[in-house]
Lab assay of single mutants.
Amino acid sequence: MEVRTIKVFTTVDNINLHTQVVDMSMTYGQQFGPTYLDGADVTKIKPHNSHEGKTFYVLPNDDTLRVEAFEYYHTTDPSFLGRYMSALNHTKKWKYPQVNGLTSIKWADNNCYLATALLTLQQIELKFNPPALQDAYYRARAGEAANFCALILAYCNKTVGELGDVRETMSYLFQHANLDSCKRVLNVVCKTCGQQQTTLKGVEAVMYMGTLSYEQFKKGVQIPCTCGKQATKYLVQQESPFVMMSAPPAQYELKHGTFTCASEYTGNYQCGHYKHITSKETLYCIDGALLTKSSEYKGPITDVFYKENSYTTTIK
């Protein structure tokens, strides 16, 4: 009895394709271990004539594949690729409408935090270190965002349907971005203890939790000093293409032309909904596939993004 075979390709990165001759009487799992086709788990399936010449994702289970996976995804987590594939199996079914010149995501599976993050990423200057993220990001900007969303979920250790947080998501993504040249110098002034300067680099240099107003941050924000008295913390120097200011959701007025974009969060910790506000020729609110415009805006804002380049204080 002759062994019926077909020729397929296996890959971990969709760049390096490895030619395989597979036995049609055995499952993919018996031949390769966990195997995925377009995100779908085909591990328990036997090869079919229609699979001839198709590319299958496999887990990096030998040295060659491990090197290829690390170079593309910059992670050695053995569960990463499987999590990416199972997320992709959902995100490829989502709709990605162009809204006001940006790629958004039609609401499904509690994905409003991903839509808000995706919209924000198209408006701030950011370059990702893992080629996987950078490639998928370019495709997302062009309207094909399924891979990018699935990668975000995998890097953030999230599953489809789980509630997510924009600030946490951005923080994970910033860790995989090139923020080497970003720098922030802060000064804390206390009447009792004097003053202390701190220099922050990388992710810490672009994120701040405690106030939404970048102007206020430049002037000074009140913080408790270690001595128990009130101290003032203010920005001395900022070198970065953008800054992200966050605070627990509270009524906040966004003035046209003073910011790049913002995240609105309605609801409580267990259950809520994100919308995205962007400042173009007027203010726009993007909620999944829905767009509304207004000249002014007041609502429960939790993150505001500002364009920056270089700032030095005039406070002496």
Rank of each mutant, 00 (worst) to 15 (best):
I223S: 12
F80V: 05
I45G: 13
K46M: 09
K44Q: 10
A154H: 02
K54F: 13
S240E: 00
K183C: 08
I301T: 01
M209G: 10
K7E: 13
V236F: 07
C156E: 01
T103L: 06
K280D: 11
L126M: 09
A40S: 13
S50A: 14
V188A: 06
N157Y: 06
Y84E: 00
H51Y: 06
Q98K: 11
T43F: 11
M209S: 09
T75R: 09
R184Y: 00
A115E: 04
L254Q: 00
L153I: 07
P34W: 08
A146S: 13
N89E: 14
N178M: 08
T11N: 04
K127F: 12
K92H: 06
Y252R: 01
C149A: 09
L118S: 04
E253Q: 09
Y311G: 08
H74Y: 06
L118A: 05
L17Q: 15
Q20C: 13
L17A: 07
E144S: 11
H276S: 05
E215C: 06
A289N: 10
D180C: 07
V185E: 06
I301E: 03
L186C: 08
T116A: 13
E2K: 11
K183Y: 15
D180W: 06
K54W: 14
F242M: 00
Q196R: 12
P224N: 12
Q123E: 10
V166W: 02
H273D: 00
S240A: 06
A150Q: 05
K106F: 06
H176K: 10
K201C: 11
Y72T: 07
T192A: 11
T278A: 09
Q216E: 12
L65N: 09
F80S: 02
D165R: 00
Y214R: 02
R83P: 03
S246Y: 06
T11V: 05
P248C: 09
A262W: 01
K233G: 11
C182Y: 08
Y311R: 08
K280V: 09
Y57N: 08
K158H: 05
G161L: 03
F80L: 06
S50D: 14
Q196D: 08
D180H: 09
W107D: 05
R66A: 14
I223F: 14
I152S: 02
L81I: 08
D303N: 04
N111Y: 02
C112M: 01
T11C: 06
T169P: 03
N14W: 08
T211R: 05
Q175F: 02
L291K: 09
I6C: 09
Y311S: 08
K46I: 13
T75P: 05
F32T: 11
A250N: 12
P60Y: 06
I315F: 15
R139I: 09
F32I: 12
F128K: 03
S310H: 15
T198D: 09
D13I: 05
K92F: 06
L290C: 12
T11I: 06
H74G: 07
